[in-house]
Design a protein around this nucleic acid. Sequence first.
DNA 1: AGCCTTTGACCAGCG
DNA 2: TCGCTGGTCAAAGGC
Length: 240
Amino acid sequence: MPISRSEEASDESTLPENAIHGDDIGQQLVLEGEQKETSHATGVGRTSEDGYNWRKYGQKQVKGSEFPRSYYKCTQPNCPVKKKVERSHDGQITEIIYKSAHNHAKPHPNRRAPAPAPAPSTDEMSEIAEAGETYDKVDADSVWGNIQSAVKDTKHSLEWKADGQERTSSASVVTELSDPISMKRGRSLCMFESEDTPELSSTLASHDGDEDGATQAVVSVEDDAEDVESESKRRYHYSI
DNA sequence: AGCCTTTGACCAGCG
DNA sequence: TCGCTGGTCAAAGGC
């Protein structure tokens, strides 16, 4: 069931750029909430959790987990990014694995694509190109570099009986900054690392052998169901 | 009309 | 070599 989170919107708007800058080899990981990603149809609202647009291209029941894993691709034309998402029966995301890095800027929240035209192509380009400085501009809009929004909704913890590994999941938040820039930004904003971030374990693995510069970011969302209330807190003090 | 989700089948890697 | 598993493709249907 779709939990209607209040907002994807807010997510998006609040969730800013976890973008990475293009070539970086980036490593990024983002944790998303669990909103249903797509409101469907053409239009706005397809951006999900991390602000990018994703298209689901497959789903499969994997062995270790009792929940199916979904496969998504970034809809941006030349963006190689893919992500695997596992979610529990209530729609809560239990794990997200990103592969590769976006080579484009994050689409604007209310806009589908970066607008091909006229305008400014500089915007996104510049972000990619000179992230550092441009960020400032961008910042105006979105302010922080890359945080992830969290997951919320923890209803119960489920047990992953997997083969041996057990994990309770429900959701939690993970904040991870891998980009220097973001780091910097994060720091200046003092937002991450909420003191109450429960246990979130995130693993980041970069394989550089895989595909050129391919990266994989694994985000495991585990958490204590009991923290439900901390959710709000968890929302990271995002304050500008 | 366009794009997305769903779902079964196919393919490749590994033990 | 065979079987298993994970990942991707592609057709059909929906919004």
